[in-house]
Amino acid sequence: MLKIKNLHATVGGKAILKGLDLEIGAGEVHAIMGPNGAGKSTLGNVIAGREGYEVTAGEVIYQGKNLLELEPEERACEGIFLAFQYPVEIPGVNNTYFLRAALNAQRKYRGEPELDSMQFLKLVREKLEVLHIGDDLLHRAVNEGFSGGEKKRNEIFQMAVLEPSLAILDETDSGLDIDALRLVAEGVNRLRAGDRSIMVVTHYQRLLDYIVPDVVHVLADGKIAASGGPDLALKLEEQGYTWLEQGGIKALKQEARA
């Protein structure tokens, strides 16, 4: 699904990613953990194509295509979805209108017929039911005045409607209380599928109690420092990132090898 090789990226002239390698197979859920400033959000933004994130070396191959050559909207149309850490409020743009315009833009790109408002509403109702979300979000402006939990649920709802092949959840747990976290995680779990890969970017292990990953990566100083199973997340939670920086990586690597 996704192959990243030796990725180097700078933000405002500062090197953030320094030779990152990562491979995610179809249907897999990978967690990217790491201390603040390690480059977690940069990775998500580089994959989504945000301006100001400059790739200086390496490659990102997605479904056999060179992702870095595509505009953000082309990446979206190819099936990449970034759930924002801070979903953007868009006053004056109705949530339903926005999502239908987005879905139809993607369908048009793929040569599929656009959905009229009745067809779209039917689809939306189905998705709301699957995610156990009320329809109150539909009638409001995109994220405007939403609580932290509502914003994150709206991201997952968008993901359900757009049905991406690769979803990147950037710190989806940040700012959520435990109930909201559980709701959002349940939503993500319902969207797990054999043809859909998910990258969960998080600082804390607790989200991974609810979204159990296949692989956990530790990102430190712009590189994947270690990779392992779900236990690796627990180990980090127990020991903290400071331990990691003070030589723990070596120990982890040996553990992983063993």
Binding site: A48, G49, R50, E51, E71, P72, E73, R75, A76, C77, F81, L82, F84, P87, V88, E89, I90, P91, G92, V93, F98, L99, A101, A102, L103, A105, Q106, Y109, A141, Q158, L162
Partner: peptide, 27 residues
Amino acid sequence: TAVFYMRTRGLSEDESRRILTAAFCHA
């Protein structure tokens, strides 16, 4: 940031700008 947000959902840059600008008056 809003323009980028809309593009990551599949809308073109022009369309995103047009929608955002019109929304301003829709308020």
